[in-house]
Amino acid sequence: MNTKTFLLYCCLFTATTLQAQQKWFSVFTDSAKLLKTANPITTQFKKDIKKLQPNIRFNTDNIINTSPYLIYYGLNDHVNLPLWSQVIPPIKQFFTGVGGSPQEGEKIFGLFFNGFYLIHEYGHALQYMVDSAHTQLGYSNEYLANTIAILWWRKNGKQAQLKACYDYAKKIYKQLPNPVPAGEDVATYFTKNYEKAASDPNVYGFMQWGQFITIYEDKSLPNFDTYIKNYLKKL
């Protein structure tokens, strides 16, 4: 590949990634479009990680698989993406309830589950690759994934989308009952009861949206590159 061809490829890839990001953070009705839009975004995330740690073998990819977990990283090295049309009625009702209407509920789903949480799940994939011995389902691992996602989206100019997520997170968080018993540490409770919490959107939402609010408001966090470098140094 000569220099001109390489530069043209880089320009085309960047343009494709930007177009994908512009469509992201909204509900998709077509599985092919969902994948086509997600793939350039996650390719860029993997490229950003490899710039910081060239020896990482990052083979994670995206598949369509709507389940009650909505979006998740599986140990088959896939990130499972959900379609709103395939989400089961009780979970749709949850979104309608916290949103105040079906339209608002659908918008919340798009912002978070066809939006923010894509990179959150790639944060889990990164953690599993570089620190599998300590990758357990729990509060601290979710906090790490949420931090990685917020910082990466900021790096990529998605401040407006993050602000929309933040505003909805605050609205939802106020509505959810605190499931943590009095006197018990929040992180300990969710780590100990993770599987149970994950099966209840009210309980799991309390943890996830609470973390989002805390991380978003944390002015002490560095930029994405510095955060990842520091994280990898500690391993």
Score class of each variant (00 low, 15 high):
86 Q>G: 02
93 Q>W: 02
62 N>I: 09
54 P>G: 09
226 T>V: 10
75 L>I: 06
148 I>N: 07
77 D>R: 02
226 T>D: 08
32 A>D: 15
18 L>Y: 06
44 Q>H: 13
136 Q>K: 09
208 Q>W: 01
77 D>W: 00
7 L>A: 09
64 I>W: 05
8 L>M: 12
38 A>N: 11
56 I>R: 04
111 L>R: 10
230 N>P: 02
72 Y>S: 08
2 N>L: 09
53 Q>L: 12
227 Y>R: 02
124 H>P: 07
74 G>S: 13
31 S>V: 05
78 H>R: 11
201 P>S: 06
141 N>L: 10
198 A>H: 05
196 K>I: 13
40 P>S: 04
71 I>K: 00
128 Y>C: 02
162 L>H: 02
35 L>Y: 02
184 E>Q: 14
54 P>W: 10
176 L>W: 02
191 T>E: 00
141 N>K: 12
87 V>D: 00
97 G>R: 14
215 I>A: 05
187 A>V: 06
171 K>Y: 01
11 C>W: 11
97 G>W: 12
66 T>G: 08
221 L>R: 02
193 N>P: 07
42 T>M: 14
218 D>V: 07
225 D>L: 07
143 Y>T: 14
142 E>V: 08
177 P>F: 03
232 L>A: 07
47 K>P: 00
20 A>Y: 00
121 E>A: 06
156 N>E: 12
194 Y>A: 00
83 L>Y: 06
7 L>W: 09
142 E>K: 07
